[in-house]
Write a protein that binds this DNA or RNA. Sequence first.
RNA 1: GGGCUCGUAGCUCAGCUAGGUAGAGCAGCAGGCUCUUAACCUGUUGGCCAGGGGUUCGAAUCCCCUCGAGCCCGCCA
Length: 538
Amino acid sequence: MAWIIFLIYRCYHSTKYKMNFLFFSVHWADVVAEKLIEKGNEHTLATAITPSGPIHVGNLREVITTEAIYRALKDKGAEAKLIFIADTFDPLRKVYPFLSKEYEKYVGMPISDIPCPCGKHKNYAEHFLEPFIETMDELGINAIIYRAHEIYKKGAYNETIKTALDKADEIREILNTISGRNLPSSWMPFNIKCKKCGKMNGEIYKYDYPYAYYKCKCGYEGKADLRIGGIGKLPWRVDWPARWKIFNVTFEAFGKDHAASGGSWETGREISRKVFGYSPPMPLVYEFIHLKGRGAMHGSTGLAVATDEIIKAISPEVLRFLFMKYEPYRHIEFDPGMELLDLADEYGRYERAYFGIEEGKIKEAKRVYELSQPYGIKGNAPSVISYRHLAIIAQIAKNFGEAKKIIERSGIAIRNEEKLKERYEKVIYWLKNYAPEEIKFEVKKEMPEIELSEKEKKFLILLNKKFEELDWNAEKIHSTIHETAKISGISSRKAFQCIYKIILGKKNGPRAGYFLQSLGKEFIIKRINDAINLNHKA
RNA sequence: GGGCUCGUAGCUCAGCUAGGUAGAGCAGCAGGCUCUUAACCUGUUGGCCAGGGGUUCGAAUCCCCUCGAGCCCGCCA
C-alpha cells in the first residue's frame, strides 16, 4: 500500500518537473511584458535621465531595460510607447569634478539655462544629452524624446502644479509619514525660478491661485503667475508622480536608490494615488553597474564610463547583450579592459547558438540574442572570428584590408564584411584606450634596447643566412626557426623569445610564422642584422 | 535605524520562481597542428553549493538563524 502511494507521489512530482521545464526559460523582458498585458493592451513606458554630467553605462541600463520590455510588448501584439524624458530643468547641484570653477555661479540654475562647457551645444544639458541620444540611436533605441524644461514651458505641468499646491498639506503629510521627514507647515511643493538670479531657489510663502508669492535665497521677493509654464519646478518626489499622470505612464524602471524604503517610489506611489488620483505604473527595480573593483558608477564622482565613449570600443549589440543576459535586479561588474573582450566572445557563442552553428545549452540564447540586436537580425551569422583573435590581428595589420587578408589566410570565412569592419574599428579603439598591457604589442620601428646572449646571437646569424634565401611564407619561416634553433643548440622557446625581443621588445608575441610573413622579408632581415650589430658593439 | 542584492570550480556566472544524479564559459593542465609561444582543435583537473538548524523519502533550491561582501535610503535627485 505504502509503495503505491509513494509511486503516485513520484508521478505527481515528475509531472510537475516537466511543467517546470516548459515554463523554464522565459526571458525577463517577456515575463514583465506578460504581466503588463494582463493589465491592459496599451502601455506607455517611461525612462528618464538627468543630463547633469556624462551619461554613463549605469544610466544606460534604465533605458535598455525599459526598451527590451517595450520590444517584448510589441512582439506580443500590445500597443506600446517608449518615452525618454531628459530632466533638463533640474538645477545644477554643485560644481562637479569635471567642471571648471567658473560654474560656481551657475549652481542652482536649471541645466538648460547654463552655458555649454565646450561651447558647441545649445546649453549645458544638451552637451551631455546629445552624445547620449546619438548612442541610443546606435543601440537601436527608438524613444520619443522629451526635454523637461520644454514640457514645463509648454504648460503641460500646469494642472498638476495647481493640484499639488492645492493639496500641499496632503503631500507634506505623505512625505513626513513615509520618508520620515519633518517638513515645516510652510513648505510648499513647488520651487520658483527666481526672476532676478535665475536659480530654482524661490520658496513660496503665500499661495493664492493663480499667483504664488516667493522669496529667493538671493534676497529677491516676487510674484509668479502659475498659469505660465516654466516659471518653476515641482520637487523630484512630486514631479515624478505628476509625470506619470501627464504622460499616462504604465511602466517605469528605476534604480534601487528610489526603491529603498521611504524612498521616492514609496512616496510617489502614494502621491500619485491620493493627490493626482492616478494609479501608479508597474515598477521594476534595477541594480547598479559597478566598475570592476571600483564601486558603483556615479556621474558626479567621475567614476563612470560614458556611453558615447564605450560604444567606440564595443559593438552596440554586445553592449545591449551585457544588459540582456542578466536580470535587471542583478548588479553587474563592468570591466572595460580584458573582460570586455570576454563579453564580446560570449556574445559570439550566443550568436553561434542562435544560428545553430554551435551546439550548446545556453539559457534563453535565442531571445537574448534577438533582444541584443539594435536593428533586428540581418542575414546570416556574421564572421565567427573572436574579438580576442581580432585584437591580435588588428595589431599586426596596418589597415582593415590587410587584417581581412590575414583572416582569410587563416581559413576563417568572412560572412559579413561590413560587420567585421565595424568590429575591427571598435577593437582598434579598445586597444588604444582600454586594453591591458599584456595583450598589446607594438612592432618597434627601431631596434629595441635589449641584450642577447652569445648563443642567441649565433642563432640569429645563422637564421639570417637561411632567411635570405628563403621563399617567404609562414610555414617555411616557422620550420626554419625550429631547424635553426636545433642547429644553434638553443631551445625553440628561447629562439622564439629572441625573435619577439628584437621585434617587439617583449618575450612573447603572436604566432611567429604569419607574423614575420606579414612584416615582410626585408624588414626582418634588416632587423636581425641590426640586432647582431648592436650586440657586437655591446 | 530601515531597505535591497549577492555568497555555487581559481575567475565570471547558470541552476533556486514550482525540491528529484552539481553545470557552462574563461583560466589551468595535458595533447594536436613539423612548433612547450596570445589563434585554432581535442581531452581534462577543479566544488562540505558561506556556516548552522528546520521541513521532507529526498534540499544548492523552501523556512529560520548566523557569518561574510557590496549597495541604497534616512541631504538633493
